[in-house]
Structure formats: C-alpha cells, structure tokens
C-alpha cells in the first residue's frame, strides 16, 4: 500500500510518526501544503488561515459556500495525491476521503490525555492547564472538521486499519509497525470470513 493517511490527536506524536514513516519508506509527506493548495485552488486562500487556526484565535468565520468549495477541493487534491502514490497524508480527513481506496492504509495515532498534556506542556513550555486547554480546543476543531465536511465521526474506529497508542510505544516502534503494514499487499481475503470461521 503506497498511500498512508494519518489521523492524530494533538500531543500524540502523530505528525512525527508520519515524518518517520515517510522517511523510512521514502514517501512524500503532505500536511500544511494540502491546506494551502486547496484553499488557493478553491479561490479563498483565507480559508487556510481558518483551518490552521485550531484555537480560533483569529475568529475567522468563512461562509458555508467557501467551506464547501474548500472541502470539495481538498477531496480532489487528496485523490490526486493518492493516484500518484508514495505518500503520507497527515490530517484533512484522508481516512474518509480515501475510505474505499485499496492502496491506502489508514492509521490513527492517539495517546492518553495525561501523556498528551505532559508532551505539549514540555514542548511548548506552558502550564499543564494551558496544555489541556489547547488539547481540548484542538480535539473540538478536528472532530468538528470531519463532522462538518463528511458527516463522519473522528473517533469511529472503523475508519482506521491501525490505531496506535503512543502513550506506551515509542515513535520508532509506531513508525516501524506502520511501515511494515504498508509493505503488505491489500488482500481481499481480509474482508471475507471463511466458512466455519468465527468472526
């Protein structure tokens, strides 16, 4: 599978895991470029700011038409990237857009709230309370993005092939597991149950 989508929680190390996977497999990593490109192509580059502003500091409120145009283009860009292959897509609901793409491996990276708070607090040099506030705002924004754009639930485990908890796993191990899974071919047998087997 030469397309990997990574959905991640703030503080889960999901972005870093994506970086490590991309480096290991020599794939291209796409993240912020996707937002910028889609916003520019949709004719409303300011949407990129609204998307980037997870904490809603800027108070931007793009119109429904702008949002819909942006979402459509994001979907197109993701499909184009997937068609080219050799790519790790971080965020932007790649797991939903490419839900039926057999060449795609959908990964979710999570961690416990305590661990996420510790990481954000330490990395950004802020208090645990501020870290928690950032995490809660980020979770709200990301959950809302999937719901608004695709009527999907961010936490729906059926959207993912792999869910990795980095509270108890190193970044390297997580990247190795994903890389190993990506090297396996898509098998149709995986979706059928042989006669006589229990599910």
């Amino acid at each position: 599978m030469d397309v990997i989508t990574i959905s991640r929680q703030l503080g889960s190390l999901g972005f870093q895991v994506g970086q490590a996977v991309a480096a290991k497999l020599n794939y291209r990593l796409v993240w912020r470029d996707l937002i910028n490109q889609a916003a520019i192509r949709s004719g409303a580059p300011e949407i990129a700011l609204a998307m980037i502003d997870e904490l809603n500091l800027l108070g931007l409120t793009p119109s429904t038409d702008q949002f819909n145009a942006y979402f459509r283009v994001v979907g197109q860009v993701i499909q184009e990237l997937a068609a080219a292959g050799g790519i790790v897509i971080v965020g932007r609901a790649g797991q939903v857009v490419l839900r039926d793409e057999p060449r795609a491996l959908h990964v979710r990276v999570i961690a416990s709230l305590d661990v996420r708070m510790q990481r954000i607090s330490s990395y950004r040099g802020i208090s645990p309370e501020a870290a928690r506030a950032q995490i809660e705002a980020s979770d709200r924004t990301r959950k809302s993005y999937l719901r608004r754009a695709y009527q999907a639930n961010w936490e729906d485990t059926s959207l993912y092939d792999l869910i990795l908890n980095t509270s108890r796993m190193s970044l390297t191990t997580a990247a190795e597991i994903i890389s190993h899974a990506a090297m396996q071919p898509f098998v149709k047998e995986a979706i059928s149950i042989q006669a006589g087997e229990e599910d």
């Binding site: 580059p45 904490l55 500091l57 800027l58 108070g59 208090s127 501020a130 870290a131 506030a133």
Partner: peptide
C-alpha cells in the same frame, strides 16, 4: 488576494492557551 480582518482582542485567549508568555 487580500483579507480584511477585524482587529480582535485575543490577549485573554492567548493567555488561556499559554501563548502570551511563550
């Protein structure tokens, strides 16, 4: 492309998220 953006009092939010000092 130009975005006209209203100046917003964001100091409280920045403090809440630990961004002001940081």
């Amino acid at each position: 492309n130009i975005k006209l953006m209203k100046r917003r009092e964001m100091r409280d939010l920045m403090v809440k998220y630990g961004l002001y000092d940081q």
